[in-house]
Every structure is written in C-alpha cells, then in structure tokens.
C-alpha cells in the first residue's frame, strides 16, 4: 500500500543485472511481471498458497508473491523465461508433453520451476518430487503426469548431476 519510499534496487534476473526504481516492499512477483514484463510468472493468490508465482532464488524455489523485492537484491533470480533457454529444461518440457503434465497451464510456470529445481538437487527436497511440490497446486492434471514426466527427464540425465 505504502508506495512512499522509492529506492533504486539492483536485481539479477535470469543472469542479467537490472536496476529497478520502486518500493522495496513491493512483491517480487509484481516487479517481475509489471516492472520487467516477465509475465510467465503467474499470480493465483498473492498469499503464498498456490505456488503459481514460484521462481528460483539462488536455485531455491520461493513464492515470489511473498518476497519483498528489496530482499531479493544480491540473489540470483530465475524465472521460467530464463529456465526455458536451457537445454536440460527443454528435456523436461518434452517429457511433460509426453506424459500430460500440462493442461490449462496456469500452475505450470510454478510447477516447472519447482520441478526443475528438484531435478538439479533432489536431496534438497528429501528426494521426493511429491514433497517438493507441496506448495504447488494443480487443479487440472491430478499431478501424475507431472511426476512421471519429471522421473523420465531425470532418468534421461536431465538433472545437473
């Protein structure tokens, strides 16, 4: 609400440094979408309950609707647009198409970001993608297509390891 303090902030988004003038308490989700035009990140609730706004901060999935933009300074922020450029991400895309991991697509950016992070470092999530996805709601797919796609992509060497 309080847009009184404007501040210049340096954010590293998808490998590029950008200076953004604004309220440091604004949500990272809004800054990405409105400020940077990165509308791949979706907003389903603004209260941290749906996971559609998930992005990576230093490789860790966070719900960007709850992250104040100011606190994201100095962190490596990656959105779905950035991840989509990578070859190992494309393997996951193909697996999702094969297994029906996407329907309406609104949860998909968040689901993909989380799943990709899990593929990089499963141990960070106790190894289980079901556990990693606990903050990502999907109303369309029943999750099974997502889980199978991720397993396939991981088995095919899609992870970083």
């Amino acid at each position: 609400m309080n847009s009184a303090q404007q501040q210049a902030m340096t954010l590293t988004i998808n490998g590029r440094e950008t200076v953004w003038d604004g309220d440091p308490s604004a949500s990272l989700a809004d800054v990405l979408r409105e400020g940077q035009g990165l509308t791949g990140t979706k907003i389903g609730c603004r209260t941290g309950e749906c996971g559609a706004c998930t992005v990576l901060m230093d490789g860790r999935p966070v719900v960007s609707c709850l992250v104040p933009a100011g606190s994201a300074q100095g962190e490596r922020i990656e959105t779905i647009e950035g991840l989509a450029e990578r070859a190992d991400y494309q393997a996951l895309v193909q697996a999702m198409l094969e297994h029906g991991g996407v329907q309406c697509g609104f949860c998909t950016p968040g689901v993909m970001v989380t799943t990709y992070a899990w593929m990089q470092q499963p141990e960070r999530f106790d190894g289980d993608l079901g556990a990693a996805l606990k903050n990502n709601l999907c109303r369309c797919t029943g999750y099974l297509g997502i889980l199978r796609a991720a397993e396939q992509a991981l088995a095919a060497g899609g992870g970083a390891r």
Binding site: L38, I80, C104
Partner: peptide
C-alpha cells in the same frame, strides 16, 4: 494461442497478463 509447449515455457498470455 493455448499451445502446450508455450505454456511450459512461460509464453502464454492469460487475461491478467
């Protein structure tokens, strides 16, 4: 416009975008 691959790459524009 609702292509599944575009959805997986964050390129789909819904009304709120």
């Amino acid at each position: 416009p609702a292509d599944l691959q575009a959805k997986l790459e964050g390129q789909t524009r819904y009304v709120h975008d």
